[in-house]
């Protein structure tokens, strides 16, 4: 059953590719923009946040017949996104490569010589912002943000965790600590799972996590959210205050957007901006945003590039100040 389905799918794919190849030799530049297969790069492995967003988009595009040709989705994982976006970089000048961005799109070039900057790529748009929660263990002695601040300032120095060093998690922990006037010992983790058990075991006092990946534990009362970094409170967590309310302004968020290779043809950029504006109106996209607790934040074309540039400069300044760069 499964085998026949796969066989059918591959047979169909084969036919499509063959016909596409036939079309290619005729002359790719002649026709209207989408006349070839799209090569969609996911710069991370399957199952991650970036992967889920990309596959949701492709699903919407295909279900609504928005892209007339085939879309080949491929996970090009490695080097914290450097491999995948490096692959897109090599398609410079073409309009048939595309990729979704995430926080690493800004931070990876800061810590490694990737050969590209976020602003090198042709922007389609920022679609959503991914904000974070500051989390405490469910059995900790502080269960609200105010209790946490009292605890931390009372102790003077606390141990907190987050993913990575050159990352927003570190910036958030440090900004909150600076604003409230306590010292932190920051423990960097590689792996969300280890960080979570670490928190539950009492080794660290708080950690930073995305609402999407921690909501299950919050509902179970295993962990308690203390602070949300977004501009407004989350609908799902109406009791959790924002940084803004507590006088910690401009907490960074992760850009979830879409990019084309550098110097992509104008018609390709226009087509994608227009199409994505349709995509973000669909119910499926809204459902995706709700399920993953993402905030709608749309900036199209050059606005997106400006946003990337500003965010990166801000990150760089903050991390340099912290001594992480």
């Amino acid at each position: 059953m499964k085998h026949t389905r796969i066989a059918l799918a591959s047979a169909a794919a084969l036919m499509m590719t063959l016909s596409a190849c036939g079309g290619d030799s005729g002359g790719g530049s002649g026709g209207a923009y989408p006349s070839e297969d799209m090569d969609w790069t996911i710069a991370f492995g399957p199952g991650g946040g970036n992967d889920i967003m990309a596959r949701t988009m492709v699903d919407i595009l295909q279900r609504n017949d928005l892209y007339p040709e085939n879309i080949r989705v491929e996970n090009r994982d490695g080097g914290s996104g450097a491999t995948g976006w490096g692959y897109l970089l090599n398609q410079a000048g073409e309009g048939y490569g595309i990729s979704t961005t995430s926080g690493s799109f800004i931070t990876t070039p800061l810590q490694a010589d990737t050969g590209w900057e976020p602003t090198d790529f042709t922007p389609v748009g920022l679609l959503a912002a991914d904000n974070a929660l500051m989390i405490a263990a469910g059995d900790a002695e502080f269960q609200t943000y105010d209790e946490w601040v009292d605890y931390a300032t009372g102790k003077g120095s606390v141990v907190v965790g987050g993913i990575g060093t050159v990352n927003v998690d570190y910036i958030i922990q440090q900004m909150v600590a600076d604003a409230e006037g306590y010292e932190i010992e920051y423990v960097p983790y590689n792996d969300e799972g280890q960080m979570q058990t670490s928190l539950l075991s009492g080794a660290i006092d708080t950690m930073i996590s995305n609402p999407g990946s921690i909501m299950g534990q919050i509902e179970a009362g295993q962990v308690t959210p203390l602070l949300f970094t977004g501009p407004e409170r989350l609908e799902a967590l109406p009791d959790v205050p924002t940084g803004e309310e507590n006088g910690v302004s401009d907490l960074p968020s992760m850009p979830r957007g879409l990019i084309l290779p550098p110097d992509a043809p104008q018609e390709a950029q226009d087509w994608w901006v227009e199409t994505m504006q349709e995509v973000v109106e669909t119910e499926e996209w809204q459902a995706y945003l709700d399920e993953n607790f993402l905030l709608e934040d749309e900036r199209w074309g050059e606005d997106f590039t400006t946003y990337l540039d500003e965010t990166q400069t801000a990150f760089e300044e903050q991390l340099t100040e912290l001594g992480a760069l």
Binding site: I6, L14, L18, E74
Partner: peptide, 15 residues
């Protein structure tokens, strides 16, 4: 072809 795991097609057409 079956698993789409990414082998280079090189000078042959992709199938």
């Amino acid at each position: 072809t079956l698993l789409n795991a990414g082998l280079p097609e090189g000078i042959l057409p992709r199938f």
